[in-house]
């Protein structure tokens, strides 16, 4: 390691280092003061924002009829700004891809033979799946939707993993990859198909918008649930003993 010239540390105090001494305490104090000043400035800016400010709530409401759903948040997520959501499902697929590239899932959690946990899993998992299904359906007209449903599904997955129900080798190959890809995949296919059907990318014809959104959300719910549970496992799956 080449030493840096002495001036470097003064001109550019590298924030990522820590030397336990007075200099560090002074640095923290100055940093805290600086950030407090910046926070106060931001506070001033926030209080200077105009109010009331309707934002985009008016156009959202005006086109709600054509969006296929009556919950405005779902309309924004799955229709008006569906393209954001498509890319975001890409980010969500990227996460297990990156985590898997780093190593195999550490099966350090011994399959717990705790009868209470086992019972709980048997009892809760079907309930969670039911709740996920309801949230997915409700998203069209009330708070809910694919992300909420997917998170609940993931909770069921995490509970299963904790109680030792690891997926077998039959699932951890292509079926698992298909599950992870289903959400963005269906979305992508819908986007392309609509383009060749005469519209623009992700332009849903109003009569089919509701059905299309439900289809996309159903696939997304499944993918989100499996993705989050796979991320909890912490690495790529390995074939091994399973129940």
């Amino acid at each position: 390691m080449a030493r840096e010239p002495g001036g470097e540390k003064i001109v550019n105090p590298n924030p990522m280092m820590s030397n336990g001494n007075n200099c560090q305490r002074l640095f923290r104090l100055l940093l805290g003061l600086l950030l407090a000043v910046l926070a106060a400035g931001l506070g001033y800016v926030l209080s200077s924002l105009p109010s009331p400010a309707p934002g985009l709530s008016k156009p959202v409401a005006e086109h709600l009829e054509a969006s296929g759903v009556s919950n405005p948040v779902t309309a924004v997520l799955l229709n008006y700004r569906a393209y954001d959501t498509l890319l975001e499902l890409g980010v969500l697929l990227l996460a297990p891809l990156g985590v898997w590239s780093l190593g195999v899932a550490a099966r350090h959690r011994e399959p717990l033979v705790d009868p209470v946990l086992d019972m709980l899993a048997r009892l809760l998992v079907p309930m969670l799946i039911l709740v996920a299904g309801y949230l997915l359906w409700a998203g069209a007209h009330a708070p809910g939707g694919a992300f909420q449903a997917g998170s609940v599904l993931a909770a069921a997955g995490v509970l299963l993993l904790l109680s030792g129900w690891w997926p077998g080798p039959a699932f951890s190959g292509l079926p698992l990859r298909v599950s992870l890809t289903a959400g963005p995949g269906v979305f992508l296919v819908a986007g392309v198909a609509l383009m060749f059907a005469g519209g623009r990318m992700l332009e849903y014809p109003p009569p089919f918008a509701g059905a299309l959104i439900l289809l996309i959300e159903a696939a997304a719910t499944w993918s989100i649930g499996i993705t989050l549970a796979a991320l909890f496992a912490g690495g790529r799956p390995v074939a091994g003993p399973h129940r």
């Binding site: 934002g55 924004v76 969500l92």
Partner: peptide, 19 residues
């Protein structure tokens, strides 16, 4: 009713943050 657009943005942001 609040403006739904920032709500949708936050859901997107949360998913990105989780990943």
């Amino acid at each position: 009713a609040p403006d739904p657009v920032p709500h949708a943005m936050v859901i997107t942001g949360i998913v990105v943050a989780v990943s």
